[in-house]
Simulated assay, not measured.
Amino acid sequence: MTTEHNNGVKTYSPDGQIVNKPDPIEVDEDFAAPKALLKAQSLANTLDTAVKIPFIGLRVGLDSLVGLIPGIGDTIMLLASIRIIYLGHKLGVPSDLRTIMIRNSLIDYGLGFVPLLGDIVDIFFKANLRNVRIMEKWWVSQNKDKIDALTQQRIKAWEGEQKQA
Results as ranks from 00 to 15, higher is better:
residue 11 T to M: 14
residue 12 Y to L: 09
residue 15 D to E: 07
residue 16 G to E: 04
residue 17 Q to W: 08
residue 18 I to V: 13
residue 19 V to P: 08
residue 20 N to E: 13
residue 21 K to T: 15
residue 22 P to L: 12
residue 30 D to Y: 14
residue 31 F to K: 02
residue 31 F to E: 03
residue 38 L to W: 11
residue 38 L to K: 15
residue 39 K to L: 14
residue 41 Q to R: 11
residue 42 S to T: 15
residue 43 L to H: 08
residue 44 A to N: 01
residue 45 N to V: 13
residue 47 L to R: 01
residue 48 D to M: 14
residue 48 D to W: 14
residue 49 T to S: 10
residue 49 T to Y: 03
residue 50 A to R: 05
residue 57 G to L: 08
residue 58 L to S: 15
residue 60 V to P: 00
residue 62 L to Y: 15
residue 69 I to T: 06
residue 71 G to N: 04
residue 74 D to N: 06
residue 74 D to K: 02
residue 75 T to Q: 00
residue 75 T to C: 01
residue 79 L to P: 03
residue 79 L to R: 08
residue 81 S to M: 02
residue 81 S to R: 04
residue 83 R to W: 07
residue 83 R to S: 06
residue 87 L to Y: 02
residue 89 H to D: 15
residue 90 K to D: 09
residue 90 K to G: 03
residue 92 G to P: 13
residue 98 R to N: 04
residue 100 I to T: 09
residue 102 I to P: 00
residue 105 S to V: 04
residue 106 L to S: 11
residue 107 I to C: 06
residue 108 D to N: 11
residue 109 Y to C: 01
residue 111 L to V: 00
residue 111 L to E: 05
residue 111 L to H: 06
residue 113 F to R: 05
residue 114 V to K: 00
residue 115 P to F: 02
residue 116 L to E: 07
residue 116 L to S: 08
residue 121 V to I: 11
residue 122 D to P: 08
residue 123 I to Q: 08
residue 123 I to S: 14
residue 127 A to R: 02
residue 127 A to L: 02
residue 127 A to H: 02
residue 128 N to H: 08
residue 128 N to C: 08
residue 134 I to E: 12
residue 134 I to G: 07
residue 136 E to F: 10
residue 136 E to T: 13
residue 137 K to Q: 15
residue 140 V to R: 13
residue 140 V to D: 14
